[in-house]
Amino acid sequence: MNARPVLSKERIVEAAALVADRGGIAAVSMRSVAAEIGVEAMSLYHHVANKNALLDSLADWAFEQISAPEIDAPWRLAMVSRARSARSVLVQHPWALGMIEARPRPGTPLLRNFDRVFGCLLNSGFSAALATHMFSALDAYVYGFALTESSLPFTPGDGAEKSFAEDVAPSPDDYPHLVRTLGELMSSGTYSFADEFDVGLDLILDGFQQRLTQAS
């Protein structure tokens, strides 16, 4: 006779993440998570009050995967590290894009992460206003890039971009500038859309570095 699975809130949330990874956030329910674990749905209520509480915990779980900067770390390195971490989490778990900051009651992992970001920036000489501008611009960029990346009809790298461009094959008569750009990008054989992330990130950080220098 098989032993009954040992339940805990952590195991329930991890199972919910697996369900969401396969079917999106809409697939997450007390019943589907219970089935993932191999128990009856009613047994989950001893650890999680209801579906909303489960989604709150799932949002917390996602944010716990995103690295938070050390307050005394060099601000630029810290923001790069956090941005790359957030991008990785959001691409691996696309369901998190629309819900980790949409919960009506932000959890401790989100608040702690945000506090560490602002602590690092304020400690590095940013004003509250400039730190807020930085925070808003970076998160919008990371979320937008992750959304684009996870929605592409191909997986970036290994020549996928070149194959896609060849399949689309825009007419040079109708789209001369697009054809020229694609031709130059693909000629090296090494172009990957994924590399655009660090390029865009550097451009944003360069702008804030300039603003910080001007304010000093």
Rank of each mutant, 00 (worst) to 15 (best):
I66G: 00
S57R: 13
A59E: 00
L58G: 08
L130Y: 03
A59L: 02
V89T: 15
L58D: 08
P106S: 11
S67L: 11
F114K: 12
L130K: 06
L121A: 12
A140W: 00
D56M: 04
M99A: 06
V89I: 14
H47D: 06
A62M: 08
F126Y: 09
V142W: 01
H46L: 06
G125N: 14
Q92G: 14
L58M: 02
R82F: 01
R112Q: 14
K51W: 02
E70N: 14
Y143C: 02
Y45I: 02
S151A: 15
P109T: 07
R76M: 09
V91A: 12
L54I: 07
A68Q: 04
S81H: 14
Q92L: 05
T108H: 09
S57M: 11
Y45Q: 10
N113R: 12
A86E: 03
S57F: 03
S136F: 03
F63P: 00
A140N: 09
E101N: 13
K51R: 15
R87M: 04
A86D: 00
F114T: 13
L130N: 13
S124Q: 13
V89A: 10
A62N: 03
L77Y: 08
L54W: 04
R103P: 03
F118W: 10
H133M: 05
L111D: 10
A131S: 14
V117F: 08
H93W: 03
V117A: 07
T108R: 13
A137H: 05
V117L: 10
D115L: 10
